[in-house]
C-alpha cells in the first residue's frame, strides 16, 4: 500500500515513525489503576501489559469490567489514576491522530458528505488537497462506499455509517486503531459482514489494532490475542494467544468454525464469562 507511506502531510507523523523504530511496543500499560468516585469504584486494578505490533488484540469480559476504560486510556480520552500508559515509549498525554478510534455510536459528521467526512481528519492534519482526494478515494473503495461519496451520513444505514468511521479513521494515517465495540449497534447479519470486512482491511493495511467487544465469537474471529478482564476490580484474568489459528486470519467466518481448536476456545471463554457472572450473583 504505497499510498499509505507516501503522504508527507503531518509533521507529527515523522515523529511516529521514529517511535516505531525505537523498539518500544505500540502500547504499554505499567501498573495502571483507574479509580472513579474518589476511589470507591476501581475500574482497573494494577494492570501491566504490552500490546504487540501488527496484532489484533481483543479486550473482552463481562459488562462493567473496565475494558472500555482501558481503551479510553490508550486513546488519551481519560488518564490513569496511577501508573502510566505509553505509546512507542512516550506517555499518552491526550488524544491524537496517531491513535485513531472508532466508536460504537455513529460519529460521522451529519453536515459533511461521506467524502468530506473521510477527508476531515486529513484536513485537520494539513494533508495537501491532492493527498486528501487520493486517500479518501482509496479508503472509500476499501470499505466499498465509493459510490456513496457524495451522500450525507443521514442517508446511510448503520453498517455503512460504521464503514465511513473506519475509512475516516484509517485515512488520518494512524499507527494504532482503537475499536470500541464498533459493531455493537448493528444487527447480527450486518455485524458478521462487517467483521469479515474488518479482517480484510486490517490484513491489507497491516495495522496494530485493539478491539473492545462483548461478543466472544467476534473476539475469536478477529483477534490474534484475547485479554479477558474481570469485573470490579478490573484485572486481566487471562492473556490468551489464539494459537489454534496458527497466525492465520480467515476471510470467511465459517472457515474459522471448522478449525480444530475453535470450539474448545469458544467453550473456554464462555466458561470464563459464566464464572465471572456467577461470581457476581452469589
Amino acid at each position: 500500500m504505497s499510498i499509505l507511506t507516501e503522504h508527507t502531510g503531518a509533521a507529527n507523523h515523522a515523529a511516529h515513525e521514529q517511535g516505531q523504530a525505537s523498539g518500544e511496543p505500540p502500547l504499554r500499560a505499567e501498573r495502571v489503576t483507574k479509580e472513579y468516585l474518589g476511589g470507591s469504584r476501581v475500574a482497573l486494578d494494577n494492570i501491566s501489559i504490552d500490546i504487540k505490533e501488527n496484532q489484533i488484540t481483543a479486550l473482552i469480559g463481562p459488562s462493567g469490567c473496565g475494558k472500555t476504560t482501558f481503551l479510553r486510556l490508550m486513546a488519551g480520552l481519560e488518564y490513569p489514576t496511577r501508573g502510566s500508559v505509553t505509546a512507542y515509549g512516550k506517555p499518552i498525554m491526550g488524544p491524537g491522530p496517531e491513535r485513531g478510534m472508532v466508536f460504537q455510536a455513529y460519529t460521522s459528521f451529519p453536515w459533511l458528505t461521506i467524502r468530506e467526512n473521510v477527508q476531515h481528519g486529513m484536513k485537520i492534519q494539513g494533508f495537501s488537497k491532492a493527498e486528501q482526494r487520493d486517500r479518501a478515494e482509496h479508503f472509500l473503495k476499501l470499505v466499498h462506499l465509493d459510490e456513496y461519496a457524495d451522500a450525507y451520513p443521514g442517508e446511510l444505514s448503520g453498517g455503512m455509517k460504521q464503514r465511513v468511521a473506519i475509512a475516516r479513521t484509517l485515512a488520518q494515517g494512524p499507527e494504532l486503531l482503537l475499536l470500541d465495540e464498533p459493531f455493537g449497534a448493528l444487527d447480527a447479519q450486518v455485524t458478521w459482514e462487517m467483521e469479515e470486512m474488518a479482517v480484510d482491511i486490517i490484513e491489507r493495511e497491516s495495522k496494530t489494532v485493539v478491539l473492545v467487544t462483548h461478543d466472544i465469537q467476534e473476539a475469536i474471529y478477529l483477534a490474534d490475542r484475547i485479554l479477558f478482564f474481570t469485573r470490579q476490580p478490573g484485572r486481566i484474568k487471562e492473556d490468551i494467544a489464539m494459537e489454534f489459528k496458527q497466525g492465520r486470519r480467515f476471510a470467511k467466518k465459517e472457515e474459522l468454525l471448522v478449525e480444530p481448536g475453535y470450539v474448545d476456545m469458544e467453550k473456554r471463554l464462555y466458561t470464563m464469562m459464566r464464572e465471572e457472572i456467577q461470581g457476581r450473583i452469589s
Binding site: 507529527n12 480520552l77 488524544p95 485513531g100 466508536f103 476531515h120 481528519g121 485537520i124 492534519q125 475516516r168
Partner: peptide
Amino acid sequence: VPKELIESAQTMGASRWH
C-alpha cells in the same frame, strides 16, 4: 451535541477551537 462527536474529533487531532 453527542459526546462521541467531540471525542472522535479529538482522536482526529482537532484543536479545541476547531
